[in-house]
């Protein structure tokens, strides 16, 4: 949806958003899938987008905000180009995930849910990636990296621009 040149054309996004609102207007329980599409379009959920969605679906803004802040996948702030999701699952925990997390956190200089100043990385945790055979594991965007050590995890991140 976004071009790589850094130029942001909001009118295209706006068109996509309006189309999504139209699509979900008559769908029962359409708020959450609509928010998911809107987040795909914008990368996060700006206030104005939530307002448009609320009025489009005739749902109070307070409710939309309540739904957005309930679910971990919705974001109110812009996120980094690369999303790191460190697994906190049981298997990863017992195989040293917290040391891996600390190493990455220190390397990037951000804590949980933090985004680096250059918008290169956002560091998140996830309850379990379901990749327990690879514990400790993390996902960067759609790639899963497993059998991590503190050193290996930091090196792995270098390939993401």
């Amino acid at each position: 949806m976004t071009c790589k040149c850094g130029h942001v054309d909001d009118s295209v996004k706006q068109e996509d958003l309006q189309a999504a609102i139209e699509k979900f207007k008559a769908v029962k329980g359409g708020l959450i899938p609509l928010l998911q599409e809107a987040q795909d379009i914008y990368g996060y959920l700006p206030k104005e987008v939530m307002q448009q969605i609320s009025s489009g679906l005739s749902i109070p803004f307070s409710k939309t905000f309540g739904v957005v802040t309930f679910y971990a996948q919705f974001h109110l702030k812009p996120r980094g180009r690369n999303i790191i999701r460190m697994c906190q699952g049981t298997a990863c925990h017992v195989r040293g995930a917290s040391r891996v997390f600390d190493a990455v956190s220190e390397d990037l200089g951000v804590g949980i849910n933090g985004t680096t100043g250059d918008l290169r990385f956002t560091l998140e945790t996830v309850a379990c990636l379901g990749a327990c055979g690879l514990a400790p594991a993390m996902m960067v965007n759609d790639d899963t990296h497993g059998r991590l050590t503190p050193e290996k995890s930091v090196v792995t991140l270098k390939q993401y621009e």
């Binding site: 906190q88 049981t90 298997a91 309850a127 379990c128 379901g130 990749a131 327990c132």
Partner: peptide, 11 residues
């Protein structure tokens, strides 16, 4: 909505 950490049978 398989969410237990360490469970991936449904997946």
């Amino acid at each position: 909505d398989e969410g237990d950490p360490g469970a991936f049978m449904d997946r």
